[in-house]
């Protein structure tokens, strides 16, 4: 086990380039579980936690940039986040318990790439962009394009998450975050969802975004249902069809936490409730 500590972003990039197989370490709330279970023996860790420059929430053109090292505890209380991205704030408040929220970071959570990452459905519907940096420069990925599978990302060796860009969404007509977890707190989700809906004056759907977590190897937007709904009024047959289409974009499984059938049925019911205006808020 080697433990490298970066004190500046420049040092971080240099170390990452030199040790492309090093595991970046932020709050440690996921990595340390793996370490305690002996799964990181012999690995090199690159500690990014001293990088103050990456622990800021700063205003940006058309939105905000959230540094990779911003904790869930800060996000859930941040006035700007509460105002413009309330679903993200809400989701951050469901991450583990207060201890995990205080330590775990947004960048670390994304890099960990769990299918059950609580902030992921909100980030998916807010169409966040993830800024990656390496010794040679920067690139940006759409949030959903970061993930390659369960605990796998498309980050190149030596590449680090620097920040997450949150664009200001137009004010939605309806929005929802719902986590169905194993218990009321300190829970891992069985399924969870975030939704944003914009309606025309005549009730037709101008735009709808709905994302599900814990329903596939990575967080999923409901592309089929979203496309079908665009331009339609939310009458019974339309909602029925959209709910049916939900299954097209996800592949839930049976595991120790829940069942495939339950995940699907619960997600469909919440999606239906959202479209029918019974669930969510304006």
């Amino acid at each position: 086990m080697r433990f490298l500590r970066a004190r500046t972003p420049e040092e971080a990039l240099r170390l990452a380039e030199k040790h492309p197989d090093a595991k970046p370490l932020a709050g440690g709330t996921d990595l340390m579980v793996a370490w305690n279970a002996g799964r990181l023996d012999g690995k090199t860790m690159l500690d990014l936690s001293p990088l103050k420059a990456w622990a800021r929430i700063s205003p940006a053109k058309d939105g905000a940039d959230v540094g990779a090292l911003v904790t869930h505890a800060r996000l859930m209380r941040h006035p700007e986040v509460l105002k413009f991205w309330p679903l993200l704030a809400e989701a951050c408040g469901t991450v583990g318990g207060p201890q995990i929220q205080a330590r775990g970071t947004l960048g670390g959570n994304i890099a960990n790439a769990s299918p059950a990452g609580d902030p992921f459905p909100p980030l998916a519907v807010y169409e966040a962009r993830v800024r990656l940096v390496h010794a040679g420069g920067r690139r940006e990925l759409a949030f959903l394009d970061v993930f390659a599978g369960v605990k796998k990302t498309h980050l190149a060796p030596g590449e680090l998450i620097e920040s997450v860009h949150l664009p200001h969404p137009p004010k939605p007509s309806r929005q929802l975050f719902r986590k169905i977890g194993t218990r009321a707190a300190q829970a891992i989700s069985k399924t969870m969802m975030a939704g944003l809906l914009w309606l025309e004056r005549d009730g037709a759907v101008r735009e709808v975004r709905f994302a599900l977590g814990s329903m596939a190897p990575t967080v999923k937007r409901l592309h089929a249902a979203e496309e079908f709904l665009r331009g339609r009024r939310l009458d019974r047959p339309t909602v029925d069809k959209a709910v049916e289409l939900l299954a097209a974009d996800v592949s839930p499984i049976d595991d120790v936490r829940s069942t495939r059938a339950y995940r699907l049925r619960a997600a469909q019911n919440v999606f239906r409730g959202f479209l029918e205006g019974r669930l969510g808020r304006s």
């Binding site: 318990g97 194993t182 218990r183 009321a184 707190a185 300190q186 829970a187 891992i188 120790v256 936490r257």
Partner: peptide, 11 residues
Amino acid sequence: LTDYVIPTALD
């Protein structure tokens, strides 16, 4: 204790 779920104060 992550997967064998006992009640928290909020449950």
